[in-house]
Design a protein around this nucleic acid. Sequence first.
DNA 1: CAGATAAATGAACATTGTTCAAGTAAAAAA
DNA 2: TTTTTTACTTGAACAATGTTCATTTATCTG
Lengths: 232, 232
Amino acid sequence: MAPNEIISPADKMALRAKQADIPASGESKTAGRKRFEPEMREHVIKAATRAIEAKGLEGLKARPIAQRAGISVGSIYNLFGDLDELTRVINGRTYDALYEIERSALEQAREAGKTSREQMMDLAAAYLDFVETHQAIWLACLAFNRNQTDLPPQWYLDKEQALFRIIEDAIATFPGAQELEARQNNARALWASIHGIVTVAVADGFLMQPIANVWTQIQIIVNAVAGSLEGE
Amino acid sequence: MAPNEIISPADKMALRAKQADIPASGESKTAGRKRFEPEMREHVIKAATRAIEAKGLEGLKARPIAQRAGISVGSIYNLFGDLDELTRVINGRTYDALYEIERSALEQAREAGKTSREQMMDLAAAYLDFVETHQAIWLACLAFNRNQTDLPPQWYLDKEQALFRIIEDAIATFPGAQELEARQNNARALWASIHGIVTVAVADGFLMQPIANVWTQIQIIVNAVAGSLEGE
DNA sequence: CAGATAAATGAACATTGTTCAAGTAAAAAA
DNA sequence: TTTTTTACTTGAACAATGTTCATTTATCTG
C-alpha cells in the first residue's frame, strides 16, 4: 500500500503466505468478478516483481505470472495492456523507492550539518547500497530501458528526472557554480558518473569487482568533483 | 577482411550491391556446398550487423538474416550455434574497433606531446565520437550484456578488459598515483564515469540532451580527476 | 427476477529461437 | 568412370512466448 514497494522486507513473509493461498483456493469457478482491479493489480505486480527478482527481466512471463497471481493470462492484459506496461509500473516503483531513499539521505545529511561534499558522498553511498540490495530489480530497470525502441511515457521520464534533481539540489549548496546551466551539467556529470561506476561493477548481473573497490572509485570521483567545485 | 568491421564507411556501397546479388542468384539449387564456411560467416555477420543498425538488437531475427544472407535458417545454427553467439561475434568486433580507435588516439596524443590531462581528454572525445557514430551497434553491445544471465566466455571478457587498460596506460603517466591498485581504481573510476555520462545521454536509444552538454559533462569529470591527480 | 454491464476466461493465433531427419554436392575410393 | 563416404545444407516441425477476442460469468440496476 505504501508508494514504494521493493519487497518491504518486513511484511514479506506474511504476504507471501496470503498470496500463495489465493490462487490455490477453489476450483477456479471465478470468472466475472467485478471491482477487483486494485487488489488484482497488486497481486500481479507482486508476482511479477518476485519473478524478476528470481530470474531477471527474462523471467517475467505472462503465463507463470498469471498462475501465481491466481488469474488468467487474459486478465493481465485487461489490467496492464501488455507486459511492457507492467514492467514500467514495477520500474516506476523502483524509481520511487530510490527517490525516497535519496531524499531522506540528503535530508539527514543536512540536518547533521554535513558539508556539501559529505552530502554528495552520502547520496552516492545510498545509491550504491540500494543497487547492491536490490540488484535484480535495478538491473531490470536498466535492461528494460535499453530494449525500448521508442520514448517512454512522460510519467516514466519524470520519475527518472526526479533523481537528477536531488543531486542538483545537493550541488546547489556549493559556494561556486551557481548558474543554472552549469549546476545542471555538474549534477548530471556527477550522477551519471556514479551511475556508470556502479553499473559497470554490476555488469552482466554479477559483481565484477569487490564492493570496496567500487566505493573507492566513487570516492575518487566525488572528491575530485567536490574539490574542483570548491575551487581548491 | 580487416579485423575491425563496423561498416567500413567506404566500401559499404560496393559490398552492398555484391551481397544483395548473391542470394538473388539462381533458384537456390545450392544445398550441400563444401568449405564455404569462412565466406558464409562473413555474409551472415554483415547481414546481422545491418539488421542491428537498422532496428536495434531486437531486429536480429534468424529468418530475415538467413534470407538476406542467402542461406537457410539451419545454416545460421551450423555456423554460430545460436543467435547469442552471433551477437557476441559482432560485439567482439565492435570492441576491437573501439580498441583500435582508442589506441591510436592515445598514440597520436603522445606523439603530439600532449599532457596527461589532454591525453585523457582525447580518449574521452574518441569514445564519445565512436558512440555517436555507431549508436545502434554500441547500444546493442550494452543491451546484450545486460540480458545475459551467465558469464560470457573469456575471449569476450578480455576484449572488454582491454579497453580499461588503455585508460590505465594514460593514467600511469600522471606524476602522482603510481601504485598499481590506486592506478587501476583511478582508471576504472574515470572510464566508468565517462561511460556513464555517455550512456545516460544516449539512454533509450535517443540523444536525450545536446551533444555539447555531454561533452561539457565529460570535461567536468576529466578536469576534476586530472586536477585531483595533479594534486593541485 | 430480468436485463444490462463489466470483467475474467482460455482457446487460438502469430512470431520467434532451435532442432534434426533427410537430402545433396563435393571429395575419396574403387 | 562409378561408387562410397563425407560434410554440409535444408526446411519442415517443435516449443515457448506475447497477444487477441468471442464467449462466459458475476454483479449491479431497475
